[in-house]
Amino acid sequence: MLERLNFIEAKYEELSIKISDPSIMSNQKEWQKLCKEHSDLEVIVNAFRDYKKVEEDLEFNKEMLGSEDDKELREMAQEEIKALTERKEELSMELKLLLLPKDPNDDKNVFVEIRAGAGGEEAALFAANLFRMYTKYAETKRWKVELMSTNETDIGGFKEVVFMIKGDGAYSKLKYESGVHRVQRVPDTESSGRIHTSTATVAVLPEVADVDIEINANDIRVDVFRASGHGGQSVNTTDSAVRITHLPTGLVVSCQDEKSQLKNKEKAMKVLRARLFEIAEAERLAGIAEDRKSQVGTGDRSERIRTYNYPQGRMTDHRIGLTLYRLESFLNGDIDEAIDALITADQAEKMKAMGNTEDI
């Protein structure tokens, strides 16, 4: 680990010289690339330099403790050693986390797809609850939410809702939400007071740039139709809704929330690109499935990840055994505690897999 950190610091210093070189600065594309690389290494290098400074101070105080006769100075040295030792441990852990492989999608915007599962109308209402939970969470982060497509029911639920969340680190936080969410509660339509169990499926996909996934125009069929609201009520008098079928995979994406056919097509293409990227990633990761298994699950949308129990007012995340007895605030978007716990568990698994648990 120390050898790797020394290499990173040397690379950082080399980049510092390069980005100050006028001949390189004249090539804006190359210069920006080097600046990005320099910036990415800066956090690690600063933490490593702090670590080395703490080590020096620690060694100095240990020497003073062994050679100093003054009682007061010895006590001061002991206090300094205790504080510096704690700081050294903190920086060691920080560096281990910084050296973990970074998910290239972490900084991207995301598409979130929520679909009602088992449970009919109650499942659709639960899907609407999840949609509200994620939009409220996005508000707390000051992220922007953009609706892509909806399929509403007569009583305010969603058979399906697809939306985009734009914001720094959106994927890094929300990627753990993919999977089956289960709710246990007494539906409003239930007269006997019997608890029902319903499900909804959540898929979180990173936004994909055009260059990441190329779609051949001959591989898609675009159909236009008249948009309609729930219950069949017409909400548009023109054929502005768009349905795109990707012929090689059979994937179908439709969008009707915009009045413009062009805007609906643009949105549908974005969602299609994200879904094709997900398929490509799943195929790539299948070959290294054993290496990526972790406590927080595989991110497979068929995996049951969480239960929301209304009678007991609790939320249980089955992947890490976390139970919170504050269901109302959780469904109001206060989900950071669960997300932070999932990130910590994921990091611990990755560190274990890398053998990255020894001290520097």
Rank of each mutant, 00 (worst) to 15 (best):
K159I: 03
V112Y: 10
D212I: 10
D210H: 06
H230E: 08
E146K: 04
M133H: 12
R221K: 14
S92P: 00
L99K: 07
A118W: 09
A200M: 03
N129W: 10
T135H: 04
M93Y: 13
D154E: 15
I215Y: 04
P187S: 04
A127N: 09
N218I: 00
A127I: 05
F111S: 11
Y171L: 03
M133S: 11
F225V: 11
L97M: 15
V145I: 12
Y137A: 05
E214P: 00
T140N: 11
V145R: 10
K141D: 05
L147Y: 10
A138R: 09
V162F: 08
D210G: 01
V186A: 00
L98V: 05
G119E: 06
F225Y: 15
M93C: 02
L205H: 01
T201S: 10
L99H: 05
R182Y: 02
S191M: 08
V161W: 05
P101C: 13
E177R: 13
A200P: 01
N109L: 11
F163M: 09
D223R: 12
T150M: 15
K144H: 03
P101V: 03
E90Q: 13
V161Q: 02
I215S: 00
D223C: 12
M93W: 06
N151H: 13
F131I: 05
N216V: 03
H181W: 09
V110E: 13
V162Q: 15
L95M: 13
T199C: 12
R182M: 07
E160Q: 15
T135E: 06
A227V: 12
D223P: 09
I215N: 01
F111D: 04
V110H: 14
V202K: 07
I220M: 13
K136P: 00
R142T: 07
L174W: 03
D212H: 08
T135L: 03
R194Y: 05
K96E: 08
E121H: 05
N151K: 12
L91N: 09
S192N: 15
G157K: 04
Q184N: 09
S228G: 13
I195K: 08
L205Y: 08
R132C: 11
H181R: 05
R194A: 13
V145M: 07
G157A: 07
L125K: 06
T201H: 01
L97V: 13
A123T: 08
L130T: 06
L91A: 06
G229Q: 07
E94T: 14
K175I: 12
E139A: 11
L91C: 07
